[in-house]
Design a protein around this nucleic acid. Structure first.
Lengths: 111, 111
DNA sequence: ATCGATGCATCGACCTTCGACATATAAGCA
DNA sequence: TGCTTATATGTCGAAGGTCGATGCATCGAT
């Protein structure tokens, strides 16, 4: 039985995309693949979520895009993290840590 | 400076409500207070989120409601967890653990 | 008499996720 | 040749949840 898949909470995808790009630039298709692969298919990234997210993030100037040749020799749009994008990632990571800590508190309370 | 508040991801609130009610029945207002207090104000629960969530959960038969007298002597609607609600809480907890583990994987990758 | 806390509820705006669909090229295979 | 799969980008509408504003009502305290 494959691992259960469930919807990823609103806002989480942006953070994961920024994180993937914090290592090196990549095109959309590769970003989605890496998220799914590293998370062992727990996080699924549909194309209907991926591309709007990328455009959203570029709109906010957290990403910059550039057409380049992909590993397969085809044209693809490579995204890279901007300076403000890196700052945003730090902010979102901190929020995430605070949230998970808070949820942990609520779960552990009463035990 | 008060701790930063940020929106709670979609779906998370339901889980927290179920968790609070897993200890003992409570009315809506108290549920919100406990979530905020235990999380040290990190998780904020507006009434525009709270009551729709409670109705949603009751609709799904994960909660049952009953008018009773509150601690202050006033009438309030007390919610209690049903058997299926308890099962649902277990499922959501597991999903949450899987998600946070997956996000952790993505964050730690490359270090 | 007014204010803050208690308590329930609805409304519209806003945003994200999701599945379906569309398009195009390249590689592999029957 | 024709079919399928993988690569690669994108849009669309439906669905769902969060949020701030607003409304109503009671109670105790100042």
């Amino acid at each position: 039985m494959p691992p259960e898949r469930f919807p990823i909470p609103q806002g989480t995808l942006d953070m994961l995309i920024l994180q993937i790009l914090s290592l090196e630039p990549a095109h959309g298709y590769a970003i989605a693949q890496r998220i799914e692969q590293i998370s062992r298919q727990v996080v699924q990234v549909g194309q209907g979520s991926l591309y709007p997210a990328l455009h959203r993030l570029e709109q906010k100037t957290w990403l910059r895009s550039e057409w380049r040749e992909s590993e397969t020799g085809r044209e693809a749009k490579f995204y890279s993290l901007t300076r403000t994008g890196r700052q945003q990632l730090a902010r979102e990571k901190e929020s995430w840590d605070r949230l998970t800590a808070a949820v942990r508190l609520i779960f552990d309370q009463g035990e």
